[in-house]
Nucleic acid binder design. Structure first.
Lengths: 255, 255
DNA sequence: CATGTGCCGATTGTTAACAATCTTGTCTAC
DNA sequence: GTAGACAAGATTGTTAACAATCGGCACATG
């Protein structure tokens, strides 16, 4: 009886090949002509990455629905997507808010970045051609602009994009995806834990990385990347500040 | 004019605290004690990882809803979650199916695994204590059992779990998440592209890895891991089989 | 026989109303 | 005045019905 829809036999019979879509139903890149949810997803994601929405900011379904002119359902779907990447947090019956990473999470994110970005060095050196180096240099120009302007958010975004760009050079979409996620979370972390007196101009470090790429010196690149990441992390104040507050009852339980 | 972190007070004011749930926010139903969607997510994920659901198998919302005794909405939500991790594919108006990774994707997944798992070697050596080694050895026992039995799926699952276990030892949840995703996709890839005559007993390779961990030889561990991953990939038949058929029109576009 | 056409069943996409829940403010009892 | 109860408002969670879409089949047609 009960040979449910989950039986392996059925699975084979109903197998599908992924279609390349004869007529570009969705090109999946961040263009403008995508499905509405994709568009909304990118809008919200960008707002968070650019610090226009800060950690902890509430994301009310109705309000977002009105802003983007769609029904709550779309918004819910998008918020769930963002929640899976830890960019927003959803609490049952209490709604969604821009994620507020704890110190522990922040350290884990940076540890992951060290592992992955440093390990990427040899791959970068191997795959970077002249065009890639040119893209990197072009990008640095934008970073310098960002620093000259007073738009801190723009500067930070550009600085983060540099790291994703490095991953894109390797051409591995899986890794690019991972790095995108890591950079989004890094952006949140910076918003919370950045020192007020920070002044490290990351575009200098980035220029140095490019130089090493041009020299095809994988080892030096890895070392420089590690140092760069350590520098970024040391520009943060990574100890608990307001996390404990969250456990008010626990904190004052015995007082 | 650098403004400090969190200069916008609005976000601060609307900040929300993550609650550990005083009691039974998510009680009821099924033994595991999570929210129903989490439970369903794991059930479907496990079915795919264990090859009870093969690549291409259609995942019809109504059927799944009946199987798990929930409404379509929950199922939809879960399917979208799985889609985001590339474990299932969703085509608009055509529903969801277990993902069918292309050869290109397969190569990218393995390239990503090489980067991450090899880079993890020093971390593993650094953080692995006796308890960790014991866990690994215990796990290997299970792998051997799996090999003795004729249950190929179980064997494969155990073999994959070993890799996630390695990441868990390091204790970085971000990396664990990445590796989970990579192993799930690897499972799909194996289901499609595995050679019929494959015979490499990965538990031997795994035992070797454990030995190197005990010796705290990071370099040798990295080298062995790389070799292991290459071995796994070379046990696959990674060239296009049925993909090209889809692009007939493109092929003859200019002839 | 090959080709095109239109309908039908199955499945997904969408909507709007309703129910459940949390937060906040107010009121009353001591 | 403080504490507890209570009610109102806002927001999320859920449901079921409806609309849109796709794939396949039969059928007519050349």
């Amino acid at each position: 009886m009960r040979r449910g829809p989950l039986s392996a036999k059925v699975a084979r019979l109903t197998m599908r090949k992924p279609r390349k879509s004869a007529r570009g139903i969705e090109t999946e890149t961040t263009g403008s002509g995508q499905s509405p949810e994709t568009h909304i997803y990118h809008r919200i994601h960008a707002a968070i990455a650019e610090h226009r929405l800060l950690p902890g900011a509430r994301l009310v379904e109705d309000q977002l629905g009105e802003v983007f002119g769609v029904s709550r359902m779309r918004i819910r779907s998008v918020l769930h997507s963002l929640a899976r990447e830890k960019v927003v947090t959803i609490h049952r019956n209490r709604g969604a808010a821009v994620a507020y990473p704890t110190v522990k999470e922040a350290k884990e994110v940076f540890a992951a970045r060290r592992v992955i970005e440093v390990a990427l060095a040899p791959e970068i050196v191997r795959t970077a051609d002249e065009a890639a180096v040119r893209r990197l240099k072009d990008h640095i120009k934008k970073e310098r602009q960002g620093e000259r302007s007073t738009d801190r958010a723009f500067e930070l975004k550009a600085s983060h994009d540099f790291h994703t760009l490095l991953a894109e050079i390797v051409g591995n979409r899986v890794i690019v995806g991972f790095l995108r996620e890591l950079m989004a979370r890094s952006s949140l972390i910076t918003a919370i834990y950045e020192r007020p007196d920070v002044s490290s101009c990351s575009h200098l470090a980035h220029a140095n990385l490019i130089k090493l790429i041009e020299r095809r010196d994988a080892e030096a690149l890895a070392a420089a990347m590690l140092k760069h990441l350590d520098q970024i992390e040391s520009d943060l104040v990574l100890f608990e500040r307001e996390e404990p507050v969250t456990d008010l009852k626990t904190v004052f339980a015995d007082s």
